Lab assay of single mutants.
Amino acid sequence: MASDGVVVEIGKVTGSVGTTVEIPVYFRGVPSKGIANCDFVFRYDPNVLEIIGIDPGDIIVDPNPTKSFDTAIYPDRKIIVFLFAEDSGTGAYAITKDGVFAKIRATVKSSAPGYITFDEVGGFADNDLVEQKVSFIDGGVNVGNATPTKGATPTNTATPTK
């Protein structure tokens, strides 16, 4: 695992066909100046998982989280898009600690492993708008004895992609 920078880890949970599971997305290594904004994309298989919603985690402190935390689910493109932009203008609602960034709610549709993997990152910046190093650890849903650990090695991303 990367020793510096922010680590975004997609949790690994267990479920069975027809059940709804909650998959946490963790941030670790949050910089001392916090995270003022970030955007990134995960990939998944809508034939295996139906993403039914995404909720902000406990490290989102904006009293009205829909102003700073936004997501979009595109089953036709097989992606989930995340956007966080601190909304106070003063840094008061920045992410300042490690913990759960988001909770992905999904219904298991198939007995195949439900991988959720890193696809791309736009950027991560602290309260001074300084770009942060970030790496990703894939996860998803274990169905029966299947284990979604494909790509469990962190993917280092030093520069934003478009």
Results as ranks from 00 to 15, higher is better:
103 K>V: 08
72 A>N: 00
95 I>D: 04
48 V>E: 03
64 N>P: 11
1 M>T: 10
160 P>E: 14
109 K>P: 08
36 A>R: 00
161 T>F: 12
51 I>T: 09
156 N>W: 10
65 P>M: 07
68 S>N: 15
68 S>F: 05
151 G>T: 14
20 T>S: 09
6 V>T: 07
95 I>G: 02
146 A>G: 07
14 T>E: 05
94 A>Q: 03
98 D>E: 10
143 V>D: 14
85 A>F: 15
136 F>D: 10
33 K>L: 07
117 T>H: 12
149 T>Y: 09
49 L>D: 02
78 K>S: 11
25 V>G: 04
13 V>S: 12
73 I>F: 09
135 S>N: 14
123 G>Y: 00
97 K>C: 05
79 I>F: 15
22 E>C: 09
19 T>G: 07
10 I>K: 07
39 D>W: 01
93 Y>D: 09
158 A>H: 12
34 G>D: 15
101 F>N: 11
38 C>P: 00
15 G>A: 08
21 V>K: 13
105 R>F: 04
77 R>L: 02
19 T>V: 04
31 P>D: 07
147 T>W: 07
159 T>M: 10
127 N>S: 02
57 G>F: 15
68 S>T: 07
11 G>S: 08
79 I>H: 01
22 E>K: 06
159 T>I: 13
1 M>I: 13
49 L>A: 13
148 P>Q: 03
37 N>R: 01
69 F>C: 02
72 A>D: 00
95 I>S: 12
146 A>W: 04
43 R>D: 05
43 R>V: 10
77 R>V: 04
122 G>I: 00
96 T>G: 11
99 G>F: 05
107 T>N: 06
66 T>G: 08
78 K>C: 04
109 K>E: 04
93 Y>G: 14
41 V>N: 00
139 G>K: 05
53 G>Y: 03
8 V>I: 14
6 V>M: 04
35 I>H: 02
80 I>N: 09
12 K>L: 05
12 K>F: 15
22 E>D: 07
130 V>G: 08
138 D>L: 09
42 F>Y: 02
34 G>C: 02
10 I>Y: 04
57 G>Q: 15
74 Y>F: 02
73 I>R: 10
161 T>L: 08
119 D>H: 03
99 G>M: 05
26 Y>W: 01
29 G>H: 07
115 Y>F: 03
36 A>C: 05
10 I>M: 07
102 A>Y: 15
21 V>Y: 05
95 I>V: 04
61 V>G: 06
3 S>T: 03
156 N>I: 09
71 T>I: 05
125 A>H: 00
107 T>F: 06
127 N>I: 02
153 T>C: 15
18 G>E: 04
154 P>H: 08
144 G>C: 15
80 I>H: 10
113 P>C: 09
88 S>I: 03
28 R>K: 11
154 P>Q: 11
50 E>I: 03
151 G>Y: 13
137 I>S: 13
24 P>C: 06
96 T>I: 10
88 S>K: 03
55 D>K: 08
41 V>Y: 00
143 V>N: 05
153 T>R: 07
131 E>Y: 01
132 Q>T: 09
76 D>Q: 04
159 T>F: 14
15 G>T: 07
123 G>F: 00
3 S>G: 15
34 G>H: 04
10 I>G: 05
43 R>P: 03
110 S>E: 08
108 V>R: 11
49 L>T: 03
46 P>M: 08
51 I>Q: 09
147 T>L: 13
45 D>Q: 04
28 R>Y: 15
122 G>M: 00
16 S>E: 15
134 V>I: 14
1 M>K: 08
136 F>L: 03
74 Y>P: 00
140 G>S: 13
92 A>Y: 13
147 T>D: 14
112 A>C: 12
89 G>I: 15
11 G>Q: 05
97 K>P: 12
57 G>E: 12
20 T>K: 14
120 E>L: 01
69 F>Y: 11
138 D>W: 06
46 P>Y: 06
64 N>D: 06
80 I>D: 15
118 F>W: 14
4 D>K: 04
67 K>I: 09
63 P>W: 12
129 L>A: 02
99 G>V: 10
44 Y>R: 02
6 V>Y: 01
146 A>C: 09
107 T>Y: 10
96 T>H: 11
142 N>W: 08
88 S>D: 03
116 I>K: 01
138 D>Q: 13
127 N>Q: 02
72 A>R: 01
93 Y>H: 14
26 Y>F: 06
143 V>R: 09
36 A>N: 01
70 D>W: 15
4 D>C: 02
100 V>M: 13
45 D>F: 12
85 A>W: 10
129 L>D: 00
55 D>N: 13
85 A>T: 07
95 I>N: 09
29 G>K: 05
113 P>W: 04
141 V>E: 13
41 V>K: 00
5 G>P: 05
137 I>K: 12
151 G>W: 11
152 A>R: 11
153 T>L: 11
97 K>S: 11
125 A>I: 00
30 V>S: 14
66 T>F: 11
46 P>E: 04
88 S>N: 07
134 V>Y: 02
136 F>Q: 05
142 N>M: 09
133 K>L: 06
108 V>F: 11
126 D>S: 04
55 D>G: 14
122 G>C: 01
40 F>E: 14
11 G>R: 10
155 T>N: 09
126 D>A: 02
34 G>Y: 04
35 I>V: 04
116 I>P: 01
119 D>Y: 14
56 P>H: 08
153 T>Q: 12
93 Y>C: 12
46 P>V: 06
65 P>T: 14
68 S>I: 14
41 V>I: 03
89 G>T: 03
77 R>P: 12
125 A>L: 00
127 N>Y: 02
16 S>A: 12
113 P>A: 07
